[in-house]
Each structure stands twice: as structure tokens, then as C-alpha cells.
Simulated assay, not measured.
Amino acid sequence: MSRRRRIGLTGAVLAAFLAAMVATLVFGSDWRVYVRFAPALGVFVLGLLAAGATAVVIDVRGRITRARESARAEAAAEHHRFLRRLDHELKNPLTAMRLGLANLAAAGADPDPDGPLAGVGEQVARLARITGDLRKLADIESRPLERVAVDVAVLLDAAGETGRDLPGGADRRISVSVPRVPWPLPTLAGDPDLLELALENLVGNAVKYSDPGCAIELRAFAEDGYVVVEVADTGRGIRADELPTVWEELVRGSDARGTPGSGLGLALVQAVVLRHGGRTELRSMPESGTVVRLRLPTS
């Protein structure tokens, strides 16, 4: 409610009180007229008071909502700035370390493939992966979102092929299941490159955290204005106490130690889905497997 309307409402309430006082003075000696007039005046005054209180509550709620939205927007902007700064600060040192390692290797300083230099090289490569994924995450959160008609079945078929080409992918039983009759899945209005990135991360995780012979299923179906995409596997699974943090950045489960990764894969997936107005879910049981579900609006 505008300031002018609030002032007008306050004036109306004061006018009602003045009218009540005048009526008391004028009709005070005639109790019959007063009895007939006072209840109607009281209802009128109470109505104005109720309207004023409601307006105040609505105004306060609106201010709180706007403050929360502003705080969320500022937090998102600050997060984006942090990712950009981190990427900038890590890029040059990583380049220098890679160059130094390459010079040492060329000079034959440590020919042992399991020696100290090899270990340093692995850690530098891990930092490079983290830096690259941080850059991707910052780009996802800030880049303009392309909106074209996306065929989910085509994306899933491509993601399945990508999974089979990954190291160890040929040893997993990767299958794709989408409804094709009596009608196909509805298309999504989205960015095909970002959606492909999300699916590749999920398939990559399924291959990485499963053993040879495990099954990996990519499936999709329509549900209440959404296309639901699931990537399921019969891999290692995730402990129950670690499930609340799986979508956080740089978080890796205890069972993932020793397996190369940046800890940003699921954070990237969630960022992509949120940019498309969808939401993510994850269910998992240790030694049984994991199901990651993406709910993406069709419009």
C-alpha cells in the first residue's frame, strides 16, 4: 500500500472517532437516538480499524518478502563473484606448476611413474579439474539461458553413448528407456548444452562410482507438466548421513576417496536444473545403488 493511501486511511479512522465524539455530545441527552446511532457507528469504526490493521500486515509482509528476495539476490551475486575470483587466483599458479613439472620431467628428474613428481602431478591435475568446474559453475549461474525446444530422448541417447565411451563404461550395462508410443515425451524449453552437461555429469558419476557389471539406467517420463529424468545405478551408493550434503560444492562422500573428482559434479547438475526452473532429488542406499531425479518443466 502506498504512503498516500495509508495517510488517507488513517485520516478516515480519525474522522470516525471525531464523528463518534460529536454524536455523543449531540445525542447524549436523547438516549433513544443515541442507542440507534451508536452501534452503526461502532461497526463502522471497527471496520476501518480492521482494514487499517490488515493493510499494515500486508505492507509488513511485502517489505519482508522484498528484503528476503534482495538478500537472496545479493548472496547469489556474491557467490558468483567469489567463484570468479577463485578461478582467477588459481589459474596462474596452476599454469606455473604444470610448466615446472613438465620441465622437470623433460630433464629426467624423476623417471619413476610412482615417484614424488608423479604424485605432485596428480594433485596439480586435481586442482585444474576443480578450477575448471568452478569456472563452469560460475558460467552456469550467470550466462544467458538459451531457450529452444529440447528433445529429452535425444539427450538421453547421447548421454548413454558418452557413458559407454568413458573409462570403464564398456564394462557397465548402460541402457536408455523413454516412452515412444502412443506418443513421445514432450519437449523442454531449455538450453541443450547445459542439459547435456548435467546428464554427462550424472552418467559420469554412475560409471565412476560403480563396479564392472553394474547396471546404469537412463530413463524419462512425463508427469504433471514436467519431464522427469532419472539416472539410476547399482553402484556403491551413499551413506544416509552424507545424503543432506550431496548437492553442496566441493563435498565428496567417504566412499569417493581415492576416486578422481572435483566434488562439483552434483552442484553443477543442480545449478543447471535450477536455471531451468526445475528441482533435483537423490535417493541412495549403500551397496545397493543411487537414483538421481531431475524434474524439468515442459514450458
Rank of each mutant, 00 (worst) to 15 (best):
H276S: 01
A109W: 00
G163L: 08
T24I: 06
F27R: 03
R135M: 05
S299Q: 12
N205D: 07
L195D: 04
G237S: 14
V150A: 04
D87C: 10
G289K: 15
A50W: 07
H276K: 05
L188V: 05
K208T: 14
R295V: 03
L264F: 00
P111L: 15
S288A: 14
G28N: 03
G169Q: 06
G42I: 01
C214P: 12
V178L: 08
P286W: 10
L268G: 12
L145K: 05
H88G: 07
G8D: 09
L202K: 11
E69A: 14
L49G: 15
P297W: 10
R135H: 10
T65N: 10
L274D: 09
R6C: 06
V272F: 02
A198N: 03
E281P: 05
D110E: 11
P93Y: 03
R84A: 10
V291Q: 06
V150P: 00
N201A: 13
G62M: 03
A19R: 04
A102F: 02
I140P: 12
E161I: 11
P186I: 01
F27C: 09
G265W: 00
V251W: 11
E230F: 02
R98E: 11
A15V: 06
R3Y: 04
L274E: 15
R147M: 14
L86H: 05
G169P: 03
D211L: 14
A53M: 14
I130A: 00
V229R: 02
W183E: 11
R143P: 04
V43R: 13
G132V: 01
Y226G: 00
F17M: 10
G277I: 06
E196A: 10
R63W: 11
T234M: 14
R257V: 10
E230S: 09
G253D: 10
G225S: 02
G265N: 04
S175M: 15
A215Q: 12
L294N: 06
L202N: 09
A107G: 04
N201H: 14
R61T: 15
V60Y: 14
A15H: 02
L137N: 07
P260M: 03
A215R: 13
D133E: 13
V251K: 15
L274Y: 08
Y209F: 12
P286T: 12
R81S: 14
D151G: 06
A158V: 10
T259G: 00
L296G: 08
D139E: 15
L202R: 11
A71C: 01
D191N: 05
L46Y: 11
